[in-house]
Design a protein around this nucleic acid. Structure first.
Lengths: 136, 136
DNA sequence: CGATATGTAAGTAATATGTTTACATATATG
DNA sequence: CATATATGTAAACATATTACTTACATATCG
C-alpha cells in the first residue's frame, strides 16, 4: 500500500493498475484489490475508462503511515494461540486478557509513531537514496 | 510462550509438557517445541525422566517480554511483498530499503517497551484479575 | 463504436501453523 | 534392575492465509 501511495504521490495524474503492477511486480488484479481498500477509506479516487486509474485525494504530506497501518493491522498486535485456554486454570482463564492489554499498549505506541511519518517523507527519503545511487 | 513462562513462574517445581498442554489447551508436542525454543535461549531448563519437566532458570522478575519478542518476531516488523519490486523503477528500486528503515524504527520502539514488562508483572496482573473475579 | 480502464468473483498454488502419531532416549522409584 | 513417565524430534496430515491468474461485467474517453 505504501508503494502504491508513493507512486501516486509522485505522479500527478491517474495511474492504471497495469502500470502500478509493473513497478510492484505483481498482477494488476492484486493492485486493484489494494487500491480498492485505499478507496474505501477515501485515500484515493479511482476513475474508470480509457484514461482512468487511481489518484490521491489529498496531499502526500497529509497522508501518514498510520492510515495504512490501521487498514492492515490484525485484530491483536501479536497473535494469540488459536485455541481457548483452559478456563479451570487460574492462568489459562486470565492470560489472554492480560496479553491483549499489552498488545494494545504496543499498538498505540506504533500507531502514534507511524502517525508522524507521511507519504511525503517516504518520497523524500527515496529521492535521497536515488541521489546516493547516482553518486556511486 | 508467555503463557508457559507464567505457569513456570508460579510453580516452583518442574511442570510436564502434558500438564502445560492442559492449561494452554493444545498437544504436549506443541508445548515441547515451544519449551525447546525457550531452552535454546536459556530461559528454562528441561529435565527428562519420570519427575521431569520444565523449570525457569531465573527469577520471573528477571525475564522480560522482550526476551520472548526476540524469539518470535519476524525478520521485518511488517511484511514486505513477496516479489522483488521492479529495479528499473525509481520507486520500486528504493521502496523496500525505506520501508525496512521504518520497520526497524518501530521494532526498537516495541522492543524497548516490552523490555520494561517482566513475567513477574504478568503474574501480578493476573492475580489482580483473579481477585476481581472472586469479588463478583 | 472500439480501446482501455475499473470491479469483482472463482479456481489454483504456495506457505505457514498447529495437530497427531510414533519412537528413541533419559531418569526416578519401587 | 525393571517399569513408568518424562523429553526430543521426525513425519504425515489438516487448515488458514495469501497471492496469482483467468474471466467477464461495467464505465468512459476519443
Amino acid at each position: 500500500m505504501v508503494h502504491v501511495l508513493t507512486l501516486l504521490g509522485k505522479a500527478n495524474h491517474p495511474l492504471s493498475s497495469r502500470w502500478i503492477a509493473g513497478s510492484v511486480n505483481t498482477n494488476p488484479v492484486v493492485v486493484r484489490q489494494i487500491v480498492g481498500r485505499l478507496r474505501d477509506v477515501a485515500l484515493v479516487d479511482t476513475i474508470p475508462g480509457s484514461t482512468g486509474g487511481a489518484i490521491l485525494t489529498k496531499d502526500p504530506a497529509q497522508i501518514t503511515l498510520k492510515d495504512v497501518y490501521q487498514l492492515t493491522k490484525e485484530e491483536t498486535f501479536f497473535g494469540l494461540h488459536p485455541n481457548e485456554p483452559n478456563p479451570y486454570c487460574p492462568v489459562g482463564r486470565n492470560i489472554q486478557a492480560v496479553l491483549i492489554e499489552v498488545f494494545e499498549q504496543m499498538d498505540r505506541l506504533v500507531e502514534d509513531a507511524l502517525g508522524e511519518i507521511t507519504v511525503a517523507d517516504i518520497i523524500t527519503q527515496m529521492a535521497q537514496r536515488e541521489t546516493m545511487r547516482a553518486h556511486t
